[in-house]
Design a protein around this nucleic acid. Structure first.
Lengths: 338, 338
DNA sequence: TCTGGCACTCCCGGTCCGGGAGTGCCAGTC
DNA sequence: GACTGGCACTCCCGGACCGGGAGTGCCAGA
């Protein structure tokens, strides 16, 4: 394919993203100083359409890019435009003020939404990839405990536990000592094995309670593989021309479904630095018109993903730059709390 | 005002809520067996319009209720229709499966959204109205602590603390003992006073650290009056005829602003069992077309609010019943964990 | 006080039409 | 062979127009 044809494609993508209207041959030849006439551009457009990169909403309308066209644009044509110095400083400052992990996540997701004018999604550090820093047992009633687990990523998980028998204060202390001894510092991936043996290590009198506790711990750390996610910027979906009323509903619904969100954030290719999934590439019917830009983050290794979700017609260079920059800063912040 | 006029108003409200279309005199006289002709109904309607309870979108259209009309309906005409036995059982079962406070709140908000087909908002138990159950200190690095506070409502708050000097394991233990000794069981409202004296009670060597800790505790429990809220059912805003595209955006934006949400949930008249705020009564421009139904909940006394938000044209009897029932069940659940 | 009748108003959906934007193709030029 | 100007053609879009229908207000009569 011709160099000029690629330039025409770029022009179409850029103009369409900017104006949200089909772009015609005249506009391309005039605004983008290609040095050729509209007629020539028309020929190139015919070729690009034949090849599936652009399409016409109807005869005698301008062209708009197809998913394939955006894909080519992202892969070969879009020069990522880094954030301005001012933006970088603002990001840095805003994130470094975070008070705890919850706050980091909340701030991150808002920041992303604001920078990109899209819907932002941030996954909490995945438990699977964290280790136990501390386990705390708090008695609610004599037969009811609260287990609080703190991970090395700063995530705090809690859970009520019903005990088979009354527990004295000392019993609780002993159990706390026991579970911490066994689990502290261990990756949660190894936890199930360790927990299985837990009951055996307790004093005989505490056997029953210890195994009840073990059972719940197991649920907390394992069965609860469900990931937590934070969402912000839903209002951006209503930006003029972003989504028409009909297509808005399924997306709003999806934003409340952890399962769907996780699928979008894509735990599969987690090692990729940055992923852009355009339209059908999401493999979700409701997101056929949607592009998702995601990045992994974490101190050293990837512990979670964050991303941004918007119409396929989005500002790719800007969005990609923003997601990448924010993911990096968040990783730095997490690094500080290791 | 005539009894029959009230019946006409009820008919208009009910029909309009059901069909979302202006209702005419003929429809009222036919469907609601008032025993009078359409012409008579027209006279009553003219009166109701004069009095400000209903209005005409334009000449020669049917009537729709005004905010004042809904208000009268809610105050005098709506018989609350209790949930069906099946619904009550479902609510009960769903909520009793909750694993911890987070889970209670999440389940509650979803349940409300689903029962009412509106947007649901649930405030976490307010810290102001809780007491400290336990404080846990976990060292992250030698100079960095994590404070975890557990309240009697099951809420868990965390925060990073930067220490002025390195802390040994024993120092941490001592500080933990100290803060728990002082704060356990105390209402958070009293905490500032207690915390202020905290540093003085520590060993001289720990003085500096204790006061750093005290400073952060103060921030955690006091300055952080900001409330946490959970939202669900945003997709319900897009129900056909609920909100037109233009008015959707400000509402979606408001749903991400804790401040606005808290204003809607209304901490002011917190003792009222159930509050219905219709249209302008919300005192928020963007919610002029919106009704908010809220209820307080809590074990014994009110510790937080929950509610539902939808177009003024909503099913008041059903919504009110649902909010009230859910608030009651949640209160029961919290009672169990006292 | 209620009712049937009637003239009136206004919305709504459909049709029609002209302007404009954009295209495809073709013949001509470098 | 690649590019260009010209031209006929297609189709959308917005506005004007119109008739049917729903609903009203008012009035005279029961």
């Amino acid at each position: 394919m011709d160099d000029r044809k690629l330039e025409v494609l770029r022009a179409i993508v850029e103009d369409y993203v900017a104006t949200q209207e089909p772009v015609g041959s005249k506009a391309v030849s005039q605004r983008h100083s290609l040095g050729v006439s509209a007629a020539t551009v028309r020929n190139d457009m015919a070729y690009l359409e034949e090849a599936g990169y652009i399409q016409q909403p109807h005869t005698s309308a301008g062209r708009i890019p197809t998913a394939k066209g955006y894909r080519l644009f992202v892969d070969r044509l879009g020069k990522i435009k880094p954030l301005s110095a001012a933006e970088r400083r603002a990001v840095h400052r805003f994130l470094s003020e975070a008070i705890d992990l919850d706050d980091v996540v909340t701030r991150t997701v808002r920041l992303l939404a604001q920078l990109t004018h899209q819907v932002a999604v941030v996954q909490y550090p995945s438990l699977n990839r964290s280790s136990v820093r501390h386990l705390e047992l708090v008695s609610l009633t004599p037969t009811r405990l609260m287990v609080v687990m703190i991970t090395d990523t700063g995530r705090v998980e809690q859970r009520y536990v019903e005990m088979p028998a009354e527990l004295s204060e000392d019993d609780v202390l002993e159990l706390r000592r026991l579970v911490n001894e066994q689990l502290q510092g261990k990756p949660l991936a190894d936890a199930p094995r360790i927990i299985a043996d837990l009951a055996g290590l307790a004093r005989p009198e505490l056997h029953a309670t210890a195994s009840a506790l073990a059972r719940v711990l197991l649920e907390t750390v394992v069965a609860r593989t469900e990931e937590r996610v934070a969402v912000a910027g839903a209002a951006n979906l209503t930006r003029p021309g972003n989504f028409f009323a009909g297509s808005l509903r399924p997306i709003l619904e999806a934003l409340e479904e952890e399962v769907v969100l996780m699928q979008l954030l894509g735990r599969a290719d987690s090692n990729a630095l940055l992923t852009v999934r355009i339209g059908d590439e999401n493999n979700l019917d409701d997101f056929r018109e949607t592009t998702v830009v995601t990045a992994g983050y974490g101190p050293g290794s990837v512990v979670g993903h964050m991303g941004v979700l918007g119409p396929t017609r989005m500002d790719y260079p800007g969005t990609i730059a923003a997601v990448r920059a924010v993911a990096r800063y968040v990783s730095e912040i997490l690094e500080q709390n290791r």
